[in-house]
Amino acid sequence: MALLEVEDLHVTFRTASGPVHAVDGVSFAMAPGASLGVVGESGSGKSVTARALLRLFSITDDVQISGAVHFDGQDLLRIDERRLRAVRGGQIGMIFQDPLTSLNPLMAVGEQIAESLRLHRGVSRSEAAAEAVELLARVGIADPEQRATELPSSFSGGMRQRVMISLAIACRPRMLIADEPTTALDVTVQAEILLLLDELRRSEGMALMLITHDFGVVAATCDDVQVMYAGKLVEKASMAHLFDRANHPYTEGLLRLVPRFEDAHTGRLHPIGGQPPITGGGGSSCAFAPRCSYAVDRCLTEVPPEVAVGPQHLSACWLAADRAKDATEAGRPWRRAQ
């Protein structure tokens, strides 16, 4: 039984220059306690997908959402604001790249956590205060009694993200959505935060959805991965499977794009030419075709369906079956190419 089931999710922003199909027919499911990395470039729709699950949009956004988001027996797109508020921060916690934008700068961090506990769980003031200190300790903040009384501004970037995580897990959510949670952090701090997320997921039995542009971050924290391009899921697989069998040309491009630490200088990098479409998806062709070095005629005239290319491995590419065969024979196409 899935904890989260997203069906044919579409998110369209109406802008002055026309509609932008930021999310264009996305479907996926997560089991309780599962871990899923969502990878793509800026503008691929990965953050918008996450926000759409909780309808977290600014009131100035002219946004249209359709599809269904089944979570724990209810459709989050159809429940009223009051019930949705109980889910946000209650059953689903969220953390973002910049914790400062989600923390109240004028309120002691312990109070902010306690407030959330009182709101969602109805515990007493003194119980909430005590539990806030426990939560700060659990995310690795030293001297939590003292730190609970301090403002967010007195915390370092890494410690602030820990505070944010303690706030997100305060109500023992069944799912945590983390949107680029370590992008702004130094690499040793990032390592600690990723390990913390992984450990909390296991100890709390939470599902984790982690949005990032970095496959390394996914590998460290998630069992499954899905790659987004122009509002669509182009590939889904287990992370272990993807190392060897990346199928979609866009996934291959992303993997070859960045220098890998374990390689010394291996010649020039391979940027993906061109740019993602600014209007998102919604076309009648493969959205990646204009940037794809493998594209054939059909890619320009028909939207490719998701094709099963292995166990729990889907790729939305007209060449998926052939590419899967090649990968089986040669392995690691994105490494071979270097």
């Binding site: 370092s156 690499v187 040793t188 990032q190 970095d214 390394g216 590998a219 272990a240």
Partner: peptide, 29 residues
């Protein structure tokens, strides 16, 4: 060594390496 181990790599040893990093870089700056 701690810095190097902290780099998340796209392979099966990714999390194990981060745990090595955590043993080599303790506490805060």
């Amino acid at each position: 060594h701690g810095l190097i181990s902290s780099v998340p790599r796209a392979d099966a040893e990714s999390a194990a390496r981060l745990r090595t990093a955590r043993r080599l870089v303790l506490g805060e700056l």
